[in-house]
Design a protein around this nucleic acid. Structure first.
Lengths: 239, 239
DNA sequence: TAGATGTTGAGGGAAATCCCTCATTGCCGC
DNA sequence: GCGGCAATGAGGGATTTCCCTCAACATCTA
């Protein structure tokens, strides 16, 4: 296993901006991360999650639970207890899973060492707050800050690429709100006024107002402030 | 001017995590950015709230307006029209200032070339959305994607370092609400209007209004809807 | 092809919020 | 005892949101 020159992460990030398919993105991340000892990957969006943090999984791969086989997206979400921790995280963090007599124990750690499966969880932020995350795992990983920073850079670029490639079809109908409604309420929750949202989205203030009224009606609430809370609770938008 | 090896941005980002003073941060950014032709810097915290995008300027340096001298923070904010554009930006972007007969013309461009002052504006995102930005400028800059990505990495790390160093002082609750404020915001998040809350709590509407204003100010947000979201995220109220 | 739904936009007026300042009271700590 | 802060309240004005209805257009579906 050769240490990749640290010049690569920047070049990879640039290359990912132009990636034309998900497999290309995956291979770029896979081969780069391999040099740090990672062989398990999860990439997902969290922008409009449900109860679960995870909204949509772009990519899951590898033997995450030590059963010698790749797992599917649902299994990962259901079984990985570290995932929720990105809600509180401001920066990438390492974790370690050890197998005790009492069962499996996941811990967020400063620097993962020893036996067990180790991982790096990388939250990805955007204008609306947490928008996604990349999780990497392996049994003998490089826990250095260099590795963490380099992988974070690549992960961020990979997320943007995957989002661009997969989120293109306006696949809506996840929660009770429509895509447009979620978008507008998200901006509202981010502190924008109706006029500001209209300006950034290129719509009239009237349209924003109408959308917000429909949102309130749909959620069965009285005020927009309450709509924000209910939408957060229902996972339509992220806190 | 020697091209810095692209291995440095990651190493610099790591080093910035442990930087112990602002000058150290500045010198790291300054020397790295110099290799790409930048000699003007602005680093500030921002909230997508409030009229002014800029919340607090951590660092401003260089001849931003071609007057042969460094400028102060207020002048920069007042005179730079590109700043507001980070409100719509999802990623770093280049801009160019040219001097026409009609006056100064700022434009957001794909790849800055030619005469004039060029710049790279790098929005920095966190759990609450836009949290800051770094702006770099120069007259002969490297407009390559490599430079953009590398500088973004360093800028993000510099922002976190500066935030850690400068935003630390208010050791106590710079965001925590008082009991009464929590109570009132909770009612608001539950859909009550100011008048209704006043009635149920036996206070005047004016008091509720004043409390909500203090809440917004304390949380550093623009609207009550955003205050609900931020308070939920910080655990001050429940979703 | 007829309906349902999403997205966009408007007119007009009522209600609510938001913003600035100022002031009183009570409590706590130094 | 004084300064700081939480809690209360007000005056007065500027913005913003909210509510009702109506309508056009597109897409998707039964």
């Amino acid at each position: 296993m050769t240490m990749a020159p640290t010049s690569t992460p920047v070049a990879i990030a640039v290359a990912l901006e132009g990636a034309e398919s998900l497999p290309v993105v995956q291979e770029a991340v896979r081969s780069f991360a391999a040099s740090f000892g990672y062989d398990r990957f999860v990439l997902f969006s969290a922008s409009s999650a449900r109860d679960e943090v995870v909204e949509r999984i772009y990519w899951v791969e590898g033997d995450w639970f030590g059963e010698g086989e790749s797992i599917d997206a649902d299994t990962y979400v259901r079984r990985c207890p570290v995932t929720r921790h990105i809600l509180e995280a401001r920066e990438p963090f390492f974790w370690t899973k050890t197998t005790e007599t009492s069962g499996e124990l996941y811990r967020v750690v400063r620097s993962p060492r020893g036996r067990g499966i180790h991982g790096l969880q990388i939250p990805i932020f955007g204008p609306l707050g947490l928008e996604g995350a990349m999780s990497l795992g392996g049994e003998r990983i490089d826990p250095s800050p260099i590795a963490r920073v380099a992988l974070s850079l690549v992960a961020g670029a990979a997320f943007l690429a995957a989002q661009r490639l997969l989120e293109a079809p306006p696949g809506n109908a996840n929660g009770t709100l429509t895509g447009r409604e979620r978008e507008i309420l998200a901006w509202t929750a981010a502190g924008r006024r109706q006029g500001e949202i209209a300006a950034t989205l290129g719509l009239s203030e009237r349209t924003i107002e109408n959308h917000l009224r429909r949102i309130r009606k749909r959620l069965g609430v009285a005020t927009t402030a309450q709509a924000v809370r209910v939408a957060i609770r229902m996972g339509d938008i992220v806190a």
